[in-house]
Nucleic acid binder design. Sequence first.
DNA 1: CGGGATCCCAAGCGATACTG
DNA 2: CAGTATCGCTTGGGATCCCG
Lengths: 239, 239
Amino acid sequence: MATRAARGYGQYSGTARALERIGDRWALLIVRDLLVGPRRYGDLKASLPRIPTNILSDRLKELQEAGVVRRVPTVRGGYELTRLGLALEPVVVALERWGWSELGEPVEGDTVGADALAISLRAAFRADAAAGLPPTEYVLHVGGVSLSVIVLGATLDIVPIGPGALPQPRRRSAFEPVPGALLELALEPDSLRDLLAGDAARATVLAGDDELLERFVLTFRIGPAAPPTERAPAADAAA
Amino acid sequence: MATRAARGYGQYSGTARALERIGDRWALLIVRDLLVGPRRYGDLKASLPRIPTNILSDRLKELQEAGVVRRVPTVRGGYELTRLGLALEPVVVALERWGWSELGEPVEGDTVGADALAISLRAAFRADAAAGLPPTEYVLHVGGVSLSVIVLGATLDIVPIGPGALPQPRRRSAFEPVPGALLELALEPDSLRDLLAGDAARATVLAGDDELLERFVLTFRIGPAAPPTERAPAADAAA
DNA sequence: CGGGATCCCAAGCGATACTG
DNA sequence: CAGTATCGCTTGGGATCCCG
């Protein structure tokens, strides 16, 4: 039985209400993955390796009761976000931006999921900078997962490559591969972090030239959550 | 002793890292209140009526360890956000916007806090719409708490009125009260929700005219998180 | 493969009492 | 007022078994 988030905060407040709905452990990570596209129960389980199956089951039930998630009628074990769930994108993106700069080095045992990576890139996407650049496809291989990222003007389309994605009527952008508009990179997770931070990063360029790499850096960027420019000499230091 | 959020998610992901830092119950509500200004232990306790004192104590310790919160050296029991903590504003604002439209009627026992209200207004603030309007002060009385809200061009300055605020060197905006630029409203929490949603709302106008009320509605607005338009998946647009 | 049920332990949470 | 200490309840987590 769903654990019922009956423990409210006793406040008539948007933040409190939101946390009552999606504040439980694991809940927003499930939403994050579903923001990339519909997923099956097993996909989510694989994407969230440490989640116990009963918790995943409970959360999916609660998220359905909250109107955030619904089942995909045509697919056994398929789940997708409702409109209300899709509206959580700004929340997840804001969290992703904040947490990204807090990523130190990967801890032993940390995994990198394709969906998580897709959201990172969505959070890093600079629509204004991209608008002036020619259509480009980026293919990223990061720590075992692969993503195809198509930037067409100010629009962004990310599709994980390989198994896990649930086939959907969702069309790719009207993008026809332009010769010389493909950058393919292979890098480690912490190198991607450095790259998005604008720092020098070790990356293996499998296809494309330096100009395309520059284009990538212009298009995708997550600055530090707390810029060092602060008048008061804060004692705290990010570890 | 701080309970240590050692239970990580095992993912090298911004969202996961963020939730490990500020995903614990009550944590973001504490951050929300501190976003309005430095507060004392007792202020927070009063603002979050249902929080057990040991949990408040634990969370403040954890938030300090996470570099989000620090003590105000000059004030006994005073806490404030660090730069990193201030950087959580987009997260809280996004949550507030999403949760606001999920506020039904107040549940018996729900309280309304001045700080929570201040964040609601910050989330509802339309800088672009406000930029074209003359400087205005709004004084709101909502369910027992009062706020002074000064809009000066595209800037917003909110100060709770009454006890609870910790005196700070923070200056009010360079705002000199203009005669005829003050709207004072008294309303119930659910009426404010309707007002910000753009619906008709029962409000008692204590000072000001209809034109000022119209100005308020233009300046502050939180639309539904899930607009009734289902079909369009809406490519994300930077606001 | 999807997903529900159970058992068990550990950790988180909540209420209250207590101390500086 | 600003916490700490304690205690009992609830939840999460891991493992496992089960059913369709």
